[in-house]
Amino acid sequence: MTAISIICFVIWLYFLMVGYRSKLGFFIFVWGSAGLFIFMMLWLRPVVSVPFSQLVAYVCGLVGQATHLFESYAKLGVLFVPNAKSASISLYIDLECSGIIEIMAFTAMIWFFPVYKTMEKLAINIIAIIWIFAANILRVFIICMLVYFYGSNIFYVAHSIVGRLVFYALSIILYFIVFTKSQIVRQKVGGFNYAGNR
């Protein structure tokens, strides 16, 4: 934790306080969630990225073990497809593959989203972490499965198109349910009247 980052943290807190005092809801959401995400990236990411990559590799390995498609080397954060068509392929689960960035982004947003109470936010956050984690496992499984059956030539399509589309779709569904649909469900319907009865 550098002195600059601590100073930035204090400045961020000050403006957040100003936002709360001025009751600037949207500013609090944008400023708060962006700041929390950046500070998590600065301070939390170096600590959790390796263990989280290993966890993803381990859980994916269980799926691979069950399907006999690939093996896990969790210590290295590597998934190995030994019998892929025309090649043997090691897939590295690094920071950007682990889903930890998406989890931190969601966490940053939910804690500054004005709709929910604290306990609701906690519950939603836990469920969302599981959701994003599972979505990432599914994404990696799809990549490994396609590579196993179609070889290394399909890797770019599997990784850049199919895997990402599945992951993005599941992420957007989560965000829609938590951040957009909740508004519609909880929206209070105001009183109505007829033009002639004003």
Binding site: S90, Y92, D94
Partner: peptide, 9 residues
């Protein structure tokens, strides 16, 4: 082969 599988986060 060794390859990365980033999510383009």
């Amino acid at each position: 082969i060794c390859a990365g599988t980033d999510t383009a986060p």
